[in-house]
Nucleic acid binder design. Structure first.
Lengths: 198, 198
DNA sequence: CTAAGTTTCCTAAAACCGTTAGGCAAACGA
DNA sequence: TCGTTTGCCTAACGGTTTTAGGAAACTTAG
């Protein structure tokens, strides 16, 4: 089949799950993760929608792949940020890596919060995230179960703060969000030092 | 028009924006807020889809109404919970009201986190939420801008914790989430007392 | 180098959702 | 009782998801 003016010669587009996932992540950052659609992705590759179904099981599969990709990417960034740091320095690096990623890639950040089924989650980079959080706490000398409590607290705080900040919840008050962020990190550091085992 | 066996006599279904909103909230709790659809709602009222468009502007309007309803209901609950309490007692009541609502009404809780446009948000019960958070902090005697920092921290922590807990993130470790929750509340109380103005 | 086999993308079609336009019947007010 | 308004309907269109089957492009074995 040969279309003269459209120049479509039935050439292959070179689709792969990986390219589709990456393009989906970019799309998520541009239009929001919940607007990522198989149709939009096909449009971006100038390909018919049905063609994607040779590379993706379905729409949910696409979303899951983007989520796993984002988790991996974020874990890499965090690992890079905390390398060679300890104590409060590591805590701040960890937290900032998290927040910066969300600001830079809001769609991917949302994707990383997608609810995964237990098996998928267990095989994802999500486990690296909790491992790294635990690693941060090595500098604070917490015994179990306090360490687990602290892991959950840090996860909740960072995710909650970033989530509310992204949603614009902090834009109505004059106080700069950056200041609050520093205040929160200082507070967490003090709290964890105070909780340290004797 | 009269259908004999279906017993449809073209009677009126008694639709109103309020009834639709409430039913939408119930639907959200059952199937998830992102699965709340004009079609599903019409099915629930045994009415054709187009009929809802006399009462709702569109699908987004429905979601926004559910969000406003949930914000209002949650604010009422929180107000009720903290009434007559102060200090750590008030903090715990506030936090528990929040968490309990999310556990009881996950769909509505998600709805309450819908991003609203600034005018809508300003006219919503969202402002009551921050006012009540500030009220909790009266027991801790914080000066500005620390009070604003603390409001943001509490909002982040509660939302983050509830959000991660709902997503199942705490189910992989043996430590009971309830214990972590108590630990976090104790920590926040200690932190706020420590931050109190001299 | 060519024929067979595989992969990649296509067309076609069905199902569901969102939305608008226009109609008829029911409720209501005079 | 008779307009008028309101509430729900049918009809229709466009978009998304998904499956089935076909045809062209690539790959590989003889």
């Amino acid at each position: 089949m040969l279309v003269v003016d459209g120049a479509k010669v039935m050439a292959r587009a070179g689709l792969t799950p990986e390219r589709l996932t990456r393009a989906g992540a970019e799309l998520a950052d541009e239009v929001g993760f919940d607007q990522v659609t198989v149709s939009a992705l096909a449009r971006r590759f100038e390909v018919k929608v049905a063609s994607l179904y040779s590379h993706l099981k379905n729409s949910q599969d696409l979303r899951t792949r983007i989520a796993l990709f984002a988790l991996e990417e974020l874990a890499d960034r965090v690992a890079d940020a905390v390398a060679g740091r300890a104590g409060k320095d590591a805590l701040a690096a960890f937290a900032n890596a998290y927040r910066d990623y969300a600001r830079e890639h809001p769609g991917r950040y949302d994707a990383a919060r997608l609810r995964l089924d237990p098996e998928t989650a267990a095989a994802s980079a999500g486990v690296r995230h909790s491992q790294m959080t635990r690693a941060i706490l090595r500098g604070y000398d917490l015994a179990e179960p306090d360490q687990t409590h602290a892991v959950r607290m840090l996860g909740a705080m960072f995710h909650g703060y970033v989530s509310l900040e992204m949603a614009g919840s902090f834009r109505h008050t004059a106080v700069d969000s950056q200041e609050s962020w520093r205040w929160v990190l200082d507070s967490l550091d003090a709290l964890l030092r105070h909780r340290a085992a004797p």
